[in-house]
Amino acid sequence: MSTPGISILDGKYMVTMDLWPQQSKEFNQIHLFYEYLKEGRFTTTKCKDCGSEPFPPRVMCPDCYSVNLEWVDWPTIGTVIDVTEEAVGVPLGFGKPPLVHALVDLDGKKTFFVRIINCKTGELKSGDKVKLAVFDVDPVPQEFGREVVEMPRVFYAFEPVK
């Protein structure tokens, strides 16, 4: 694992260069989102006091400022409003062009602008259904005392319902 130009960083993990969020409980209080994601569930926090369901998940309700929150499941199937296909400038870590995104109505909960995977150029159209797709991403080598433990991680996109 050499890092050209910076020999002292050989084998070292750099949080500042990490594409994906930290998902362990030591580094993220909403780590349950990722635990549920591993089960194929798309969740957020609901406020037990005012009923608000903000996304992303929170530790404080942004509407009534309560910290009395619970996890709720959201739909995992949505309807495509419109599609973009990025031909040039796809960032590292997102595969070969095109990088497909769609504006997706998640059953009235929110309108998400999300990455669509397992989808060919021109395949996806307005009105099509897409579903949650969860995939593994690089684990984080996290220090626990003198031990370094590989902490598994996942992330999500959506994919066409076939």
């Binding site: 594409l19 990025e86 990455r115």
Partner: peptide, 12 residues
Amino acid sequence: WDGGQGLGLPPP
């Protein structure tokens, strides 16, 4: 959230 969707560069 949006970074993980590859939305850092704004063209899409």
